[in-house]
Design a protein around this nucleic acid. Sequence first.
DNA 1: GCTGAAACAGACTGGACAGTCTGTTTGTAA
DNA 2: TTACAAACAGACTGTCCAGTCTGTTTCAGC
Lengths: 210, 210
Amino acid sequence: MPKDGSTNRARILDAAEQLVIDHGYAATSVDRVLEAAGTSKGAFFHHFDSKLALARALTERYVAADLDQLNAGLDATADVADPAERVIAFLRYYEDRGDEIMGAQSNCLYVAVLTERQLLDAGTADLVRGAVQAWRAEIARLLSAAADGRATDLGDVEDLADHVFTTFEGAFLLCRATGSPQHMRAQLGVLRRLVGAALGVDDRDAARST
Amino acid sequence: MPKDGSTNRARILDAAEQLVIDHGYAATSVDRVLEAAGTSKGAFFHHFDSKLALARALTERYVAADLDQLNAGLDATADVADPAERVIAFLRYYEDRGDEIMGAQSNCLYVAVLTERQLLDAGTADLVRGAVQAWRAEIARLLSAAADGRATDLGDVEDLADHVFTTFEGAFLLCRATGSPQHMRAQLGVLRRLVGAALGVDDRDAARST
DNA sequence: GCTGAAACAGACTGGACAGTCTGTTTGTAA
DNA sequence: TTACAAACAGACTGTCCAGTCTGTTTCAGC
């Protein structure tokens, strides 16, 4: 086997991810990606069949990292015994990392991908849909456990679960519109407070993840 | 004065709005806009100095319509006496129109505008920021009145007010990701329920706007 | 050290695109 | 009815861009 190309491929993906998140997919030319990655056209089309294939690879990698984040939140709060407090601890996990999230990226790749019709048609949206369903399923599980035996009427549990994704994406856009990255943390905090009120969990009692 | 060009200009804006919302700004060529609008290059560059100027005009018009929606919600619920119930009626106003909103457009122009760095740099984001601040200010007013004299701790009222914008934009993306427009109504419903729980407003008691 | 295939490098191409330019039409006012 | 300016129409241009193609380098296995 010749020279290991995986590092170069990763460099291309890294550069492309930043550019696409910040500028959008259509506004990001392959040449600019190559310039940022410090590589050549030959290398690019060796690793990716087309620019669309890059978008797909980019999204696949991003979805995987996103699901890692989901599991990280689940793992970090696995020891919280009370199901309702578990939900709040789970939400607080991301709230605590809100600034960190916005420090690492100025927007969500999902926003860029979902904006462009050509990417939707190319099936890239299916990958995002998978991530949405994963978050929905796991959070709905947490919520069902929390609602069990309580008088609180949460409405459709899956819709409530989807509100976490909704809050993430909406907050990304709010940050972009205002230019203030602290809105991510603030909006995740709003979500935690609202769900806490709906579940009847007192703020001060709620377990905090380590 | 010669032929009135305002109708042609509006046709260009209409066509461009649909295309930009669905495909994104960079992925929408002027030629495709002209084709959809049934007009010519000469007409386009007579009405707009550049493609960037089109984006600005598009956003200005969209912001104006957005603020009309804000005022419509305020007006429709102006007769609700109890401030807390007013908030819920206000949210329910948009929830009731969720399907209608997604029927008219497959996404929000704000998403497309905020995705592209070149538009942010061109000051287009400032227009969106103005809309965000208008929603925030009006809803914060409603929330402050509702919180006044109640024991409920809503946290930062402006952050909670921003959660309405967050929910709208997040729901647009959720609809796009899943391909299901009914999520808009569902997410607005989740928001209403959560805020209702936080304010201690019983669902069945809450006034419904006509 | 020779071979073969993977990993690159970079010149090149055909098309698409934003914007220009030269006209032509339209309506109004004198 | 002519003069004039706004409102168009559409051919044209230079640039950028995705993708191609022809090489050259790298390295494992023999």
